[in-house]
Write a protein that binds this DNA or RNA. Structure first.
Length: 264
DNA sequence: CTAATCACCTGAAGGC
DNA sequence: TGCCTTCAGGTGATTA
């Protein structure tokens, strides 16, 4: 579910909710969801600051870091009081010394909470955050890749943060066919794609993220951006630009929506 | 290097 | 109602 905009909303809320709080214990209800990679040290300490790169949430403690990736169905739910798991899908709970808690709910169990010395242990293949990228670097990466655009944009090592939804949206608004080779773009097309990606992500943040089914913010609220999709989930519906039926095909292993008329 | 497939999991939705 | 198949926002390993 969560791509860059959804993770950004969660991070912004968490900053206000848990910065400065001290972790008392972490209860791993489903052990597979929590990876302890710090020898002889339980997860404790004060949360100094919270960062985000791509879809990763990085909570910086005194000596270590707690990194969370929500993958498909993960949610971080904050509560002012101490309470047991709110339902059977809660995989871990962080209890703070002031009595509040953060519950990590994840239906499909793909998400992870990592306790690490450095976030690089799990983020060595994650590139520059999509909102921190500059157009020159983006153009250089495109020029040096023979991948199709869809696969290129989904690959987190180039640009971190885009997932299936915002890839399809950005390619539609750029007028680019998802199978188009990255190194075939002109300077104009590259610049347009760069700006479109940034605008699509920013608009989604302004709309509190997209909720297809599982995404919730830390208070359990859904996003609103799903009401503004231009192509994603619009198979067989008329293109908002030209009226042609939107097609859905499988590309780079993912459902890919596009307008056969507008995207070349 | 690039592309395709599978694996990891559970639940919802559609076909029969 | 029930069974079976397919699909889902992600990523990493493996195999052509």
């Amino acid at each position: 579910m969560p791509e860059l905009p959804e993770v950004e909303i969660v991070v912004r809320e968490l900053r206000g909710q848990i910065t400065g709080k001290t972790i008392q214990t972490v209860q791993a209800i489903w052990p597979g969801s929590v990876e302890q990679r710090v020898d002889r040290s339980p997860v404790t300490g004060q949360i100094q600051r919270i960062d985000r790169r791509g879809k990763y949430i990085i909570m910086r403690l005194d000596e270590t870091v707690l990194v969370v990736h929500l993958r498909m169905t993960g949610q971080l739910l904050f509560f002012d009081d101490t309470r047991p798991a709110v339902d059977g899908h809660v995989r871990a709970i962080i209890y703070f010394s002031d009595g509040s808690c953060l519950q990590f709910k994840d239906v499909r169990k793909f998400g992870r909470m990592y306790h690490l010395v450095s976030e690089q242990e799990v983020m060595k293949n994650v590139g520059t955050d999509a909102l921190e990228m500059d157009s020159g670097h983006f153009r250089d990466m495109l020029k040096n890749s023979k991948m199709g655009l869809k696969a290129f944009l989904l690959n987190q090592k180039h640009l971190a943060g885009l997932g299936n939804i915002y890839c399809d949206e950005a390619l539609f608004l750029s007028g680019l066919y998802p199978g188009r080779k990255a190194n075939s773009l002109s300077a104009t097309e590259s610049g347009r794609l760069f700006r479109t990606i940034r605008d699509v992500l920013q608009a989604a943040i302004d709309n509190m993220g997209s909720t297809i089914s599982d995404y919730r913010d830390t208070k359990g609220n859904k996003g609103n951006n799903q009401n503004y999709f231009k192509v994603y989930s619009r198979e067989n519906m008329p293109c908002k630009h030209c009226g042609t039926r939107i097609k859905k095909i499988k590309m780079a292993g993912r459902g890919t929506h596009f307008c056969p008329q507008c995207q070349k």
